[in-house]
Design a protein around this nucleic acid. Structure first.
Length: 462
RNA sequence: GCCCUCAUCGUCUAUCGGUUAGGACAUGGGAUUCUCAAUCCUAAAAGCGGGGUUCGAUUCCCCGUGGGGGCACCA
């Protein structure tokens, strides 16, 4: 059994679509599962579309997702290989050679300056009502595709088709097949939108006398709301969006894996090594999946919660740094910054909540939510509670959350009150809001001086 | 219009002919907590319709309906 060789063949459009990401992922998973080779090939024959930085969009996205390619354009530790070049724009000679083979075999003809691929069979002229023109139909047997996911699919390919445009540029169907032959691709894993093209491809493989690869057409990702498949203009369609929003790539990968595949049991969050071990093409679903950003967000939260402290801090730091507002003031005090982050890690659902969630921890000039204030100040005698706190805080051990908690509880008990009677107003005074991490943790990292200052300032203005 | 394809809770899905049709996200309720989350418990929630095959169909077949994709000298 020869080694599995799969390829991901995007074209540089300037975007990296979430559907492309999943196609890349499934190819990569299959290569890793089988110990095969994952090839990156850039389909940049459409000169209108590509520009230099568009290539980087592809490399960046794959790198971020952790989908390293064994063969392809050389980027970092990825790429290389002896079947190059891996940019179609550099393979013109190869296409010419293959075209000559087809010509020599009598499988082409020219018409209006374009080269057509000639099907084998009796021809007849037929008027096509819908297209309003006469077309030449060829009497052929239907092309049979044995798809690893769809099963047996038959399609009648009964018209010759263009393989080289009149401007001399070969078309997608041609270069795609030529490259798959030249690069010895064994499995073509791609979106279902290509299923109808496959009959053309199979006929080309046969005309070249080349072995037909195994096909596996994976279902498409449908847009969250409304009809149709996900397109670049839809919310959440672009990979860079998740990068910017501080999503964890492994969370996105895990989520994408589950869109059309499952391990056969109820597990959802799985380490990538386990996914690689279990992934296989016959296990891929046949029906399209609707994108669900809520589930993705949940997956991301689960991953975020379990991040080790060091990595969480690193991720959060680079998220802050990527913000327009930046984070220079915070980074100046790495220990404080770290303390803030670790206090908030168990509470947030995503890194993008962080700046808003922590704003008052990085400035004395924080706003107070008027509605929250009204609510908190309406119950009991919050001013008295603050005064009581201010009186006892100097005696607290501010290095320990539990010491602070016990201190407040003791105070509450003395006055026949509950912890909450102090917590809510103290939080309001210290943060300006009613949501946030534990009040004892807040006290600890703010330090006694800043807490007292904030409480007194609040009292003065209340 | 033609061709291909798909069809289980709102969404992602499990079920290899016999199950109280399971799980997850989201939603409702409850518990816990120091607010908010998280967590735990819990509720509601599905086999598109019609024919077959079978002792028995969500499961197999056909038709219909609905969804998706494709029908370029785009990729």
């Amino acid at each position: 059994m020869s080694q599995v060789r799969v390829r991901f063949a995007p074209s540089p459009t300037g975007f990296f679509h979430i559907g492309s990401a999943r196609t890349a992922l499934f190819n990569w998973l299959y290569a890793r599962h089988t110990g095969g080779v994952f090839i990156l090939r850039i389909e940049d024959t459409d000169k209108e579309r590509n520009s230099a930085q568009f290539y980087n969009v592809i490399y960046d996205a794959l790198t971020w997702l952790g989908l390293n390619w064994d063969e392809g354009p050389k980027v970092g530790s990825c790429g290389g290989g002896s079947f190059g070049p891996y940019l179609q724009s550099e393979r013109a000679d190869i296409y010419r050679q293959y075209l000559e083979k087809l010509k020599a075999a009598g499988r082409t003809y020219e018409k209006d300056g374009a080269v057509y691929f000639k099907l084998l069979g009796d021809r007849s002229e037929v008027f096509d009502d819908h297209r309003k023109k006469t077309v030449t139909k060829v009497k052929v047997a239907p092309t049979v595709i044995d798809d690893l996911i769809r099963g047996r699919v038959e399609r009648l390919e009964d018209e010759d088709f263009v393989i080289v445009r009149s401007d001399g540029n070969p078309v997608f169907h041609f270069v795609n097949v030529v490259d798959d032959i030249a690069m010895q691709i064994t499995h073509v894993i791609r979106g279902e939108d290509h299923l109808s093209n496959t009959s053309k491809h199979v006929e080309l493989f046969k005309a070249f006398g080349a072995p037909v690869p195994q096909f596996a057409h994976i279902p498409l990702i449908l847009k969250q709301a409304g009809p149709g498949k996900m397109s670049k203009r839809d919310q959440g369609a672009l990979i860079e969006e998740y990068q910017k929003r501080g999503y964890l790539p492994e969370a996105l990968v895990n989520f994408l894996t589950l869109l059309g595949w499952n391990p056969g049991d109820d597990r959802e969050k799985m380490p990538i090594a386990e996914i690689i071990r279990l992934f296989d093409l016959p296990g891929v679903n046949q029906s399209n999946a609707r994108f669900d950003d809520k589930k993705l967000a949940h997956m991301n939260m689960v991953y975020l919660l379990e991040q080790p402290a060091d990595r969480f801090v690193r991720l959060a730091r680079s998220y802050f740094e990527s913000q327009p507002a930046g984070a220079p003031a915070l980074l100046a005090e790495p220990d404080y910054f770290r303390a803030v982050l670790l206090l908030c890690q168990p509470k947030i659902k995503g890194l993008e909540e962080l700046p808003g969630y922590t704003a008052y921890l990085f400035t004395e000039d924080y706003a107070t939510d008027a509605k929250v204030k009204e609510k908190v100040m309406a119950k009991g005698d919050p001013k008295a509670r603050l005064n009581e706190l201010i009186a006892v805080l100097p005696g607290f051990d501010f290095t320990s959350d539990t010491a602070i908690e016990e201190g407040i509880k003791a105070l509450a008990a003395r006055n026949g009150l509950g912890f909450g009677d102090y917590q809510s107003v103290a939080r309001l005074a210290v943060s300006g809001t009613n949501v946030g991490p534990s009040i004892t943790g807040l006290f600890r990292i703010l330090t006694r001086e800043r807490v007292l200052k904030r409480l007194e300032r609040f009292l003065a203005s209340a």
